[in-house]
Amino acid sequence: MGSRYHQLDSIRGIAALTVLLGHFASSILIFCTCTNTTGNEDHVILNLFKYTPLSFFGAGHEAVILFFLLSGFVLSLPFFKQTNTGYGQYLIRRICRIYIPFAIALLFAVVMYFISSPSVITHMSSWFNGQWDMPIDVKDVLAALGFIGVFDTDKINPPIWSLVHEMRISIIFPFLMFVLVRWRTLFSVALACALSVLGIAATSVLNPSSLVNMYITIHYAAIFMVGALLAKHMSEISRFIRGKSRIVKVIMLLIGFLLYNFKTVLPNWSLIHNYLFNEWAITIGGSIYISIAFGSITLERVLLLSPIQFLGKISYSLYLYHMVVLLSLTHLLHGWMNIEIILVISFVVSLIVSTVMYYLVEKPSMNFGKYLTGKERSTKNQRTTAA
């Protein structure tokens, strides 16, 4: 396999789009999952997207689990190839890749909050009105920027909760890789399961109120580990899948789809729909998605289509800015036009803003990280020498 896995970029882009669609849908009163429309004959089509596997198109939390799998996969590659640099260089590049765009998006959200002067909009969902529903002060901003203590991400930019976990796990990830590189896969899986159970149990017992609590970070670290193990064995996995017939690949993809949508597909029985089962079903389903992306030539071709590749390129910015765009435009334009039109405008503006911020913030941040760690300079030196 090559050094760049463009299929993974595309998967990340599709996942970011499902987060956007889920948040947009949850903002409308009738679409919001907290509004029960089951059995209502007036909402047959709506219920298909709320209570069937079609809910994939708005599966926000599932997409976050997929993000964590992809991060674990990509971050592990230099360790398995033994091309990783020192911890300091790794951390600098990670901060430039994740934290700098995160911090700028956070400050952008604060500015838009004060510009849009948010208030309750009666025909929007309670979930939507629960965002930006309290004043933002300097302490909130500093807490979010410094990942200090327990803070409410909904006060500034709702999706950033996952990035707090992403940065925490990134800091300790090389130490996890020290184990994964040396241990047998079975022992590594056992460790991941143990960390997951520990994190979920601690969260359940201590019942912290914040999405950014430290206990659930332990569980998410286990998902990073699963992504890393996928990378470790992807050559064997892809060879195995490529040797199967098309019908077998379709069945595998269907199984992945059903597991990824575990909460929707199976009956709402508390025995099988506890948090641990749901999380691991999503994790296994997401792992199957990633595996088939390498094992199916047809799916690989689809994922390498230019529009999907572009979506993957701007996926991080799309994740960072879509809720800020939706919240600010809805509050600014409410009363001037219908909510349906506002949603369409918000969707288009989200793509535009994400594209601009990718080139204005993300790409320069990545290049800055390479420059600080000498990677960019060594490349230039090699080119000069070759010339």
Rank of each mutant, 00 (worst) to 15 (best):
G58F: 00
L54K: 01
F56V: 09
T37N: 10
S26A: 12
E41P: 15
G39K: 08
F57T: 14
F24T: 10
I45S: 07
T52D: 06
F56R: 00
T37E: 02
T33C: 01
N40R: 09
G39M: 13
F49N: 08
I30Q: 03
A59L: 08
F57E: 03
T35V: 14
C34K: 13
T35K: 08
V44E: 05
C34Q: 10
T37K: 08
T35R: 08
P53E: 07
F49S: 09
F24G: 04
A59C: 07
F24H: 03
N40I: 14
I30L: 12
D42T: 09
N40H: 11
I45H: 03
F49H: 09
F57K: 12
T52Q: 03
I28N: 01
T33E: 03
I45R: 04
Y51R: 05
C32L: 04
L48V: 08
L46G: 09
T52N: 06
F56T: 04
C34V: 14
G58N: 02
P53C: 12
L46E: 10
L54P: 03
F24A: 11
D42S: 14
F56A: 02
F31D: 01
S27M: 01
Y51N: 10
G58D: 07
N36L: 13
S55F: 02
D42N: 14
C34G: 03
C34R: 13
V44C: 04
K50Y: 03
I45M: 12
G39N: 14
I28D: 00
T37M: 11
V44K: 06
L46K: 01
I30T: 13
T38D: 06
L54N: 05
L48K: 05
P53M: 10
C32D: 14
L46W: 01
A25Y: 00
S55V: 04
T33F: 02
F49W: 08
S55P: 07
S27F: 00
T37S: 11
S55L: 04
S55W: 00
F57D: 03
T35G: 01
K50M: 10
D42Y: 05
T33Y: 02
S26N: 04
F24R: 02
E41Q: 15
L54W: 01
C32K: 06
C32A: 14
Y51S: 08
T37H: 09
F24I: 12
D42M: 10
V44P: 03
N47V: 09
F56G: 02
N36T: 12
G39C: 15
I28C: 00
A25D: 01
S26L: 03
H43D: 08
I30M: 08
T52A: 08
L48T: 12
L48P: 07
G39H: 12
T38K: 15
T35F: 05
S26W: 00
N40D: 15
C34T: 13
N40V: 14
T33P: 00
F57N: 10
A59G: 09
E41S: 15
N47S: 15
F31E: 01
S26M: 05
L46R: 06
E41D: 14
L46Q: 11
H43L: 13
F31H: 06
T35Q: 07
Y51W: 07
